[in-house]
């Protein structure tokens, strides 16, 4: 369902999993009942779910939401709340769009649920604008989710309403799912770098460089998902900073592309994308950059998801 033209009744419900992304999740697989349970619980709070939107298109959560939508026989919006993958709930678009993430339903691996909030957090803040309230709610939900994940030691499904379908276009990052699937097809079919070029050109993206991974620096936190690596061949030297997600690419020391742009590191042989923890020394890779998918509140989006939000001391550079 296209969020920009959605007119149906009812609300869109965000679905995703929060917590230690792959470790516990790969051991303790979701039973499949968690997403329906969450949506059902939201229904008891008066949320009339008529469509599903993924928290983030990147990684596991993009597909999980699509699967959940199928399970629930609900349409899935061609959109998400992050445009990519992001680590913290308060970076997600409702947090700066004046839409409260509360009440939110959390479901753990044993099907135990928690309902967070109901009253809006805005009451506690002297600045009662909707934006301040939704930001406070996002931070609050993020903290609760973290506390619960710590207590359970695994992951929880997070779900909440992002508002009525007719107004959802103001909140979400549109058209990311079809974009993802288009790129999936393109990459699966790609035989050479030059074959990719027309598709990149079409979106204003570019190949930042290719070569082999010549150095990797991982301080040993987060199972090797934080740090940087370099890519070199005969051409320029690329440096990619990562923190779960790829955050910035410098070419020969000049910052060429940063979050929230989409930075893809592809296996040079198969042209399939690699995750941060899959980067290995000497692997042949291609680094590409695509302009970010932008929500309507694009300035807030770039501010919330730019390098500074990850503690990196430079300005955002978008292709």
């Amino acid at each position: 369902m296209d969020p920009l033209t959605a007119t149906a009744h009812g609300q869109a419900v965000a679905l995703g999993i929060a917590g230690a992304a792959d470790g516990p999740l790969s051991e303790q697989l979701p039973s499949g009942a968690e997403f329906p349970a969450a949506v059902e619980r939201l229904a008891s709070l008066g949320v009339d779910a008529q469509a599903v939107v993924p928290l983030e298109v990147g990684g596991f959560n993009g597909l999980a939401a699509v699967a959940a939508a199928a399970q629930l026989s609900l349409p899935v919006l061609d959109a998400d709340l992050s445009g990519r993958a992001l680590p913290w709930l308060d970076q997600f678009s409702p947090a700066y769009s004046g839409v409260s993430m509360l009440p939110a339903v959390l479901v753990d691996a044993h099907g135990r649920t928690m309902v967070v909030g109901g009253a809006t957090h805005a009451a506690a803040v002297p600045d009662t604008t909707a934006e301040a309230g939704s930001a406070a709610d996002g931070r609050y939900l993020e903290e609760i989710v973290r506390a619960v994940v710590r207590a359970t030691g695994g992951w929880v499904v997070v779900s909440f309403s992002v508002g009525t379908l007719s107004e959802v276009a103001d909140v979400v990052v549109p058209h990311v799912l079809l974009r993802a699937s288009r790129w999936g097809r393109v990459l699966a079919a790609a035989q050479s770098l030059s074959g990719l070029q027309p598709y990149l050109d079409a979106e204003g993206g570019r190949v930042l460089g290719d070569g082999h991974v010549s150095a990797i620096h991982r301080p040993g936190v987060d199972g090797g998902r934080t740090g940087w690596f370099t890519v070199s061949a005969s051409g320029p030297l690329l440096r990619v900073d990562m923190q779960n997600e790829f955050l910035a690419v410098a070419i020969d020391g000049s910052m060429a592309c940063t979050t929230p742009a989409v930075i893809g590191v592809l296996d040079a042989r198969t042209f399939l994308p690699l995750r941060a923890d899959q980067i290995r020394l000497a692997a042949d890779v291609v680094v590409i950059a695509l302009p970010p998918s932008l929500p309507r509140r694009r300035d807030a989006y770039v501010e919330r998801t730019g390098p500074a939000s990850f503690g990196l001391d430079f300005e955002a550079v978008l292709p």
């Binding site: 150095a215 320029p236 030297l237 440096r239």
Partner: peptide
């Protein structure tokens, strides 16, 4: 060196 020796050294070589 740990900080500078990785990508910066490679970059120095390259440039």
């Amino acid at each position: 060196e740990a900080q500078a020796g990785g990508s910066a050294a490679a970059l120095a070589r390259r440039l």
